[in-house]
């Protein structure tokens, strides 16, 4: 698993990458009450605003970590946004992307580097 400095986690699953946000992020955001997921089939570029999440406090954008095609989104999360708080690296995943350039993964942090980042 890899991590972005924006507190996303990226988990390879066959030729796809599953994307969500870390427990550190959900703790900082507080209770999440709304998640707007991208359309399945959408093509995104790295750093495109791809997901909107709203906590009780504020709205935040989640950026696409990679170029690629959105192949699946977590409909259960849209139905129950609290999943992102309850199980951020499991049932609280956001979307699965088919990367067009898998080497973009190389620039991201490994777990030790991410843990160092969040102190």
């Amino acid at each position: 698993m890899k991590f972005t400095e924006e507190h996303e986690w990226l988990r390879p699953e066959d030729d796809l990458i599953v994307v969500g946000i870390t427990e550190h992020a959900t703790t900082q955001l507080g209770d999440i009450v709304f998640v707007e997921l991208p359309e399945v089939g959408a093509t995104v570029l790295k750093d495109d605003e791809t997901v909107v999440i709203e906590s009780v406090k504020a709205a935040s954008d989640i950026l696409a970590p990679l170029d690629g095609e959105i192949v699946e989104v977590n409909e259960a999360l849209a139905e129950n946004p609290a999943l992102a708080n309850d199980d951020p690296v499991g049932d609280g995943w956001f979307f699965k992307i088919k990367p067009s350039d898998p080497s973009q993964m190389d620039s991201y942090l490994d777990e030790a580097a991410y843990q160092a980042l969040i102190g």
Partner: peptide, 9 residues
């Protein structure tokens, strides 16, 4: 205090 460990909800 904006929230305690219990959380806003």
């Amino acid at each position: 205090p904006v929230q305690y460990p219990m959380g806003v909800m």
